[in-house]
């Protein structure tokens, strides 16, 4: 039984993520194995942050004795509010993990009010 798998254009995986935050930034880490920098597309449009990742590893042909991996591209959309500084977003892709750092706007940070 020869199986050939093709990457269909429509099917997508939502990459699993861990999100953490503090007063000054939000960090989102997404697992996207098989994606390189070139295959990554990150966009902010209004209140939506979209991440698209195309897998660049090839799909071998042959007889599949075990098949558990899902050979699909990745897509994830986050809603971001006004407190996120649109200009202060950085991204890093290492070992199949995308790390996004979103800075919180200065005006949105909690402020300490000194007592005179």
């Amino acid at each position: 039984m020869e199986t050939s798998i093709t990457r269909s254009g429509n099917k997508m995986i939502v990459p699993p993520a861990q999100i953490r935050e503090d007063e000054s930034e939000v960090i989102a880490q997404l697992e996207m194995p098989g994606v390189t920098k070139e295959g990554l597309d990150i966009k902010i449009d209004g209140h939506t942050l979209t991440i698209d990742g195309k897998r660049s590893d090839d799909i071998p042909s042959g007889k599949y004795l075990i098949r558990e991996r899902r050979h699909y591209d990745y897509h994830k959309a986050f809603t971001i509010d006004e407190s996120i500084d649109r200009e202060g977003v950085s991204a890093d892709l290492t070992d199949g993990i995308l790390t996004l750092r979103l800075k919180v706007k200065e005006t949105a940070k909690p402020r300490k009010i000194p007592v005179k």
Partner: peptide, 22 residues
């Protein structure tokens, strides 16, 4: 990890998705 085991004509391929593993 999720793995694939593929038998080709000349070799056997084992593929595993291991994001974040060094």
């Amino acid at each position: 990890p999720d793995i694939d085991l593929v038998e080709g004509d000349d070799e056997i391929l084992v593929l595993a998705d291991l994001p974040g593993v060094r």
